[in-house]
């Protein structure tokens, strides 16, 4: 059974990449390179190191932004989840932010903070934070009452209830919020590089487009999607190690 699933995954990849290759060979468009051309471009960029230089640049706002969003988002989320007053005051803001196309704020951020790192970090934060806050607060609010009562009946102090019951019980949903936040952060980081100033991977994409070096452009896009997927998988592994036996969290977005 395990073999079948692996086999089908490989088959599925072969089908998609094969279709890409064929479409590139026809070609469906002058701007549609084959899979192999794109991969050799990726290989070239990997060998001459340019892709690592680019990612060093791209990951800076991403990591800073995700780190800020995580700490601030989980903190705020816990607070909102525990206090009815703060929920009333703050959660509407995040609910609106969650539903709204915050990308529209980018031109304003650029005017306020220039075209440097600060703006890009901001973009990542506004994209990543709302879902982290909302998932955390929702999970804390929905901690089973019986678990909390159990804690109190065994004389647990408030901070024990928080650390030993509420947070572990909420952790699957918090983590799924983190995964969604990170994935939104990636969207923000790339958006910032394409919209604000072309740096890092965004620069490779924009530059190779402008000189019609399409294989490099596709290679860069391929690599960023791959990176995002790998990073999210890593996050899931970390979750599994940290909270063994957690049921997979319920995704709210």
């Amino acid at each position: 059974m395990k073999n079948r699933s692996l086999l089908l995954k490989i088959l599925s990849a072969v089908l998609v990449f094969g279709a890409w290759e064929v479409a590139g060979r026809i070609p469906v468009s002058y701007a549609f390179p084959t899979f192999l051309e794109s991969m050799s471009s990726l290989l070239r960029m990997t060998l001459d190191g340019s892709i690592f230089v680019a990612y060093a640049e791209t990951l800076k706002p991403l990591i800073v932004g995700v780190a800020i969003s995580t700490v601030l988002g989980i903190g705020l989320g816990l607070w909102i989840g525990l206090s009815e007053k703060f929920e009333w005051l703050f959660s509407p803001i995040f609910i609106v932010m969650q539903a709204a196309p915050l990308a529209a704020l980018i031109p304003l951020l650029v005017m306020a903070y220039g075209i440097g790192l600060t703006s890009k970090v901001f973009v990542v934060c506004i994209m990543a934070m709302p879902v982290i806050v909302l998932n955390t607060s929702g999970a804390v609010r929905n901690t089973p009452e019986s678990l909390k009562e159990m804690g109190r009946s065994f004389m647990a102090k408030d901070h024990h209830v928080l650390l030993k019951i509420i947070i572990p019980a909420a952790s699957p949903v918090i983590f799924s919020g983190l995964r969604l936040g990170v994935s939104a952060g990636f969207i923000g980081a790339i958006l910032a590089e394409l919209k604000i100033t072309p740096t890092g991977v965004g620069d490779i994409i924009s530059y190779s487009r402008s000189i019609a070096d399409y294989p490099s452009m596709y290679a860069a896009i391929f690599s960023i999607i791959l990176l995002a997927v790998l990073f999210l998988n890593l996050l899931e592994k970390i979750e599994n190690i940290l909270f063994e036996g957690n049921d997979r969290g319920y995704v709210t977005d």
Binding site: F186, I187, I190, I205, R209, I221, I224, I225, V229, L232
Partner: peptide, 13 residues
């Protein structure tokens, strides 16, 4: 969960 923004330039060309 992929950063779909990266695909927009492709769609543009």
């Amino acid at each position: 969960s992929a950063p779909l923004t990266a695909l927009v330039p492709v769609l543009m060309v």
